[in-house]
Design a protein around this nucleic acid. Structure first.
Lengths: 94, 94
DNA sequence: TAGATAATTAGATGATAATCTAAATAAAAT
DNA sequence: ATTTTATTTAGATTATCATCTAATTATCTA
């Protein structure tokens, strides 16, 4: 299994516990940055940084809504990640 | 989903591309350190470091065989990791 | 027992990453 | 148009991590 840059970025994205927490929070539906921020202690700049890593890994999507940006899980890429993950251990797609 | 130290160590372990490659190599069966090393360019010390991270995350097991140490995938923990991974996205066990 | 081989551990270095504050951008409200 | 609110970007700092060489431990063999 030869790794792509995209796969690399996905593994890097889920390596951080805060980013995994963000993904978890987004399971329950889309949220604005401020709503996500309510779950964390760190600064808005730090959150923005984490969101950009998740976005580059295509694990989340953003859209504007007025001043806010609404983040959602990118379910198709999550599927893809699960596939890669299962391949890592040579198992079938769930 | 509240993360344990163990889960943290597993995600950290698979965050590195070289360690994922080691796991892949071990899918084909157990190998000595020298045999694993044949697949890589970095030093033995570096490999030893990566193996110790995989071992602490319990993704691999080691046993002695004379001077050699034989590494194997720890399949039950791999199963567990897959479960955690699916839970991260709220899906069923494959 | 001495020397060779296999692997790990110690300690150092350079690169990367998480975080912060301050500044910038963009939209909304007054 | 100015101010306020939401978010991102820039730049700096600190911590963590991958890697190296050298030293150590443990086993095997001559």
């Amino acid at each position: 299994m030869q790794e792509t840059q995209k796969q690399e970025s996905m593994f890097a994205a889920i390596a951080d516990v805060q980013r995994r927490k963000i993904l978890n929070i987004l399971k329950n539906g889309e949220l604005s940055v401020a709503e996500i921020k309510a779950h964390f202690d760190f600064s808005g700049a730090t959150l923005s940084h984490h969101l950009s890593i998740l976005k580059n890994a295509e694990l989340v999507r953003v859209r504007r809504q007025g001043q806010q940006r609404i983040y959602t899980l990118n379910l198709s890429v999550v599927e893809e990640l699960l596939l890669i993950f299962n391949q890592l251990f040579n198992r079938e797609k769930p």
